[in-house]
């Protein structure tokens, strides 16, 4: 920490220098773009191949090698197949389930993470550890007792019950992510807020939450994808076809005797896109370094 202020020019220069990770080398622009292109190709190819498979002839799939280019003329046929199931209803259900899981789990996680990070109480270690009880046993083992429990509580065949069950499985990780984030925030910031007149709840909502936003975003991604992809519980708890999430609906394309690979791929593509959009929206929040400059040293 400097005692004297550097002139602005010097300081910004130093600031920029600091922003660069030590040991990073500067590549020239073309090289950087080339590397980017390789990355895009690498991560984008599976998506492209899904599309390609969805739009290919059956003969290609089961006979000769699959071509490199999609057969766009198959789009209409595919539309018919997809149209024969309530795919958008399923996607909406998935959205509700994943969104609900994320929201509930984050609310609990912020509160629990704060308590675990800042409060002293008896059984704190045990509480933190027991959060992982659901993670220690295989989900398949827990399905049966949860089913019995939900049956008696009337929570089967509804999205509310499914969200609750999902939260139980996804929340522990979020709690620990958020506890870690709060641990890293100097306690004095909270004290300053308390002196300035914030009650504790306000400290949490007004001061801490913005500071741990990157971790909240990271936890949100994990929760959302868990909720979005969850299959076993949904398949077990929800019998009614209209209440299925897309993951269960997608699986229904796989028949016992006949599986239409193109329709599976087409539905899978539709299934992937919302999750992708969600990630793209949230990912820019996952940056670090927000607390820089708060306290000395």
């Amino acid at each position: 920490m400097t005692t004297k202020e550097a002139p602005p020019v010097l300081r910004t220069a130093a600031h920029k220098r600091r922003l660069k990770a030590p040991g990073t080398r500067n590549f020239s622009k073309p090289v950087r773009y080339l590397m980017l292109a390789a990355l895009v190709l690498f991560s984008g190819f599976p998506l492209y191949w899904m599309l390609n498979t969805a739009l290919s002839q059956d003969s290609e799939l089961y006979g000769q090698a699959q071509g490199w280019w999609p057969h766009w003329e198959r789009l209409a046929d595919l539309g018919d197949v997809i149209g024969s199931v309530p795919i958008f209803k399923w996607l909406t259900n998935s959205m509700v389930i994943a969104g609900g899981t994320t929201l509930l789990s984050l609310i609990f996680a912020v509160l629990a993470g704060y308590a675990l990070s800042r409060f002293k109480f008896h059984g704190k270690g045990a509480a933190g550890f027991l959060l992982f009880a659901t993670q220690m046993l295989p989900e398949a083992l827990l399905v049966v007792p949860i089913y019995a429990l939900f049956a008696s509580l009337g929570l089967l065949n509804g999205m509310g019950g499914l969200i609750l069950a999902n939260v139980a499985f996804t929340m522990p990780v979020s709690v620990w992510i958020i506890k870690g984030a709060i641990d890293a925030i100097p306690y004095e910031i909270e004290e300053a807020a308390a002196v300035d007149g914030c009650p504790r709840v306000t400290i949490l909502s007004l001061v801490l939450t913005p500071l741990i936003l990157p971790s909240i975003a990271a936890a949100a991604v994990i929760n959302f994808f868990d909720g979005w992809n969850e299959f076993l519980l949904a398949k077990t708890f929800i019998a009614e076809r209209d209440l299925w999430p897309a993951s269960v609906g997608l699986a229904s394309f796989i028949g016992q005797y006949l599986t239409s690979l193109n329709s599976v791929m087409a539905a899978a593509l539709l299934f992937t896109l919302p999750a992708l959009v969600f990630f793209l929206l949230v990912q820019r929040r996952i940056v670090s370094g927000l607390t820089a400059g708060s306290v000395k040293g």
Binding site: P186, E188, V207, L290, S294
Partner: peptide
């Protein structure tokens, strides 16, 4: 109802 200046500043970084 006190005002306090912290030795370590404790500013709100956001």
């Amino acid at each position: 109802d006190v005002a306090f200046v912290f030795q370590s500043y404790a500013l709100y970084p956001h």
